[in-house]
């Protein structure tokens, strides 16, 4: 994973050997929430952390934001230590649940967070108006947040994360609590933000979220990194070719092999079939239950032949893609 100096500037988040062990009051280890995580998030991408509940996604995010201190290893954001407050100028964070002050209304909330960025009164006013419009909450902007529904709270939570027009947006389970339309809108917004050049780190246990919007994903399970790469690479099954054709006669079908070889058919598509993320995901979970400590990615990195046939299903076995470039 060596990179040039140019590359370095495009690395927004970098974790090195990041490890977190939650300890009890007496300092005895309680939960190994994250183990030796190495990852990089690059400028302009949507990076997804995927994993079942309790797999360490929120822990990773909190370590990156400096809300938690690593047990060992390091998290760097914009090349600064996670504990450095000044990095926060360029970050927006939507927590797992929108932990906002219930006694403020939407305008007061956004104005308050605007002040924390030292924004001038005029700029704040403008920003608050824009964001309230963006999250479509105009009609309720004077109501105290304690009267808000979960979806509305989520939206105002997102607005507060965007108040400073951040370069890096960190979203912890952005779609939980949203209805299907809300989810759709949230995903579109995330993509739009990426298209504006922002970098997004999000985590979710919902496969569909990640599959739809993320450029690259990392799969966590019980605090361990199981898989990481570009979504299309992770999902393509290389040793199977899927052909879809229209209007082939019986005869032609019998001759399909030769027709393809001679390249004369009306070829609609010819590609590796993709497994669903769900399959991949379940496979990983099954794998690591059966073989604790097993790391698909490491295995792949070492370019060893997959030798899991006797313990895993065929579809898993077939998942084998190149490392992300």
């Amino acid at each position: 994973m060596s990179k040039s100096v140019d590359d370095k500037q495009d690395v927004i988040i970098e974790t090195r050997n990041l490890t977190k062990v939650y300890k009890d009051f007496w300092g005895r280890p309680k939960v190994n929430a994250l183990e030796s995580l190495d990852l990089e998030v690059r400028r302009g991408e949507i990076f997804g952390l995927l994993g079942p509940n309790g797999s360490g996604k929120s822990t990773t995010i909190k370590l990156i934001l400096g809300l938690l201190f690593p047990t060992s290893g390091q998290a760097l954001v914009f090349n600064k230590e996670a504990s450095d407050v000044s990095k926060n100028e360029r970050i927006g964070y939507l927590p797992e649940e929108s932990y906002l002050y219930k006694f403020l209304n939407a305008e007061e909330t956004l104005d308050f967070y605007g002040r924390l960025f030292n924004m001038s009164a005029g700029r704040r006013k403008q920003r608050v108006r824009d964001l309230i419009k963006l999250i479509d909450i105009e009609w309720a902007k004077r109501r105290q947040l304690k009267e808000y529904s979960k979806g509305m709270t989520r939206r105002i939570g997102l607005a507060q994360a965007l108040i400073n027009d951040p370069e890096l947006i960190v979203l912890d389970e952005p779609t939980t609590g949203l209805d299907p339309i809300g989810t759709r809108e949230m995903k579109e917004l995330i993509v739009r933000l990426r298209d504006q050049g922002k970098t997004i780190l999000m985590c979710s246990h919902l496969l569909a979220d990640v599959q739809d919007v993320c450029d690259r994903i990392a799969i966590l399970h019980q605090g361990e990194l199981k898989e990481m790469g570009a979504v299309e690479n992770l999902l393509s099954v290389r040793d199977i070719t899927q052909i879809q054709a229209k209007g082939l006669s019986e005869e032609a079908q019998q001759q399909i092999r030769s027709i393809i070889e001679s390249d004369q058919a009306d070829l609609v598509s010819m590609e590796n079939p993709t497994t669903t993320l769900e399959d991949l995901f379940l496979g990983i979970v099954r794998d690591s239950k059966a073989r604790p400590g097993y790391n698909r990615k490491r295995e792949r990195d070492q370019q060893e032949p997959v030798a899991a046939a006797e313990t895993t299903g065929a579809s898993d076995e077939s998942v084998d893609s190149e490392d992300e470039s």
């Binding site: 934001l65 400096g66 809300l67 407050v85 000044s86 926060n88 100028e89 970050i91 964070y93 927590p95 649940e97 932990y99 906002l100 002050y101 967070y113 924390l116 960025f117 030292n118 507060q160 400073n164």
Partner: peptide, 15 residues
Amino acid sequence: KNKTIYTITTKPVRA
């Protein structure tokens, strides 16, 4: 306790 502090300490607020 309410974790509202998360949205404060992740802003450039000094301790």
